[in-house]
């Protein structure tokens, strides 16, 4: 039974709602484990095509539990390897959307950056305050943010530890859309339902290829794209999609 999150599904969309409202959804290790387990459960559930992670009105997630790490020794951390859990998020092949209201700070920002798409409220705030505690982001923050906005801007933000508005995050390509704060969940679900209508096999092959573009040398990325393109031809949805195009009718995708 989950202690720190709520999980439910709605028309093929699996929703994870972060639920530690008394601490603005600050992440502790148990909570990260719950999120990862829930993601894996949605990943293995054939009925789920798209996953949404959301917080509440005040916060997506404002950082991590400081108490959990304050007195840790380097060796404690090495042996505990707490961030390995986060790597499992990147293995999820279904689209993951983040709906951000309020604060996405520190580990909360890193959780959003582990998602494929981020929608945020006009007054949402993103940031890495770790520098002010004498440390730095540890769950991929320096890597994800740099890949999203480039070296110089990433350094400026992470060095200063200041909060970025949603419009700034949009301007630098860190997030996808800025929407009315009252409608963040509604708009995220609208996008999720649009993706539910798309052929799921294409979506996962596209996801893998786009991340290859980010992380691999060009030729390797192109090779992977080609293989995925060929692989798509093993699907019924490819046959349906092309037939529907010829028949001038809308396709019906089955995810096979």
């Amino acid at each position: 039974m989950n202690k720190y999150i709520k999980a439910f599904s709605e028309d093929h969309v699996g929703v994870i709602q972060l639920d530690r409202p008394n601490v603005l959804n600050a992440l502790n290790r148990e909570m990260v484990t719950e999120i990862v387990s829930q993601l894996q459960s949605f990943e293995n559930n054939e009925d789920i095509r798209v996953i949404v992670i959301r917080g509440n009105e005040l916060a997506f997630a404002a950082g991590a539990d400081i108490d959990e790490m304050r007195d840790a020794s380097p060796l404690d951390l090495e042996l505990l390897n707490p961030f390995a859990e986060w790597d499992k998020i990147s293995l999820i092949k279904k689209p993951i959307l983040a709906a951000v209201n309020g604060f996405a700070l520190g580990g909360g920002f890193e959780l959003a950056l582990h998602c494929d798409v981020i929608l945020a409220a006009e007054d949402a705030k993103f940031g890495f305050p770790e520098v002010k505690l004498g440390v730095l982001p540890g769950a991929g923050g320096t890597q994800f943010l740099t890949k999203a906005m480039g070296t110089r801007k990433a350094l400026e933000w992470i060095w200063l530890g200041e909060q970025m508005t949603a419009n700034e995050a949009l301007k630098y390509g860190v997030i996808n859309r800025v929407v009315a704060k009252e409608l963040v969940v509604e708009e995220t679900m609208r996008l999720a339902f649009q993706l539910v209508e798309q052929p799921p096999i294409s979506l996962r092959l596209i996801k893998e290829a786009v991340y290859a573009a980010r992380d691999l040398p060009l030729q390797e990325g192109k090779n992977l794209e080609r293989k995925n393109f060929y692989l798509a031809f093993a699907s019924e949805d490819q046959k349906e999609g092309m037939q529907a195009f010829i028949d001038k009718r809308p396709p019906t995708f089955k995810g096979r």
């Binding site: 929407v179 009315a180 009252e182 409608l183 509604e186 708009e187």
Partner: peptide
């Protein structure tokens, strides 16, 4: 698009 947001929120 923002007008649509505004009217949706007002409509609620």
């Amino acid at each position: 698009e923002q007008e649509a947001y505004a009217q949706r929120v007002a409509g609620l």
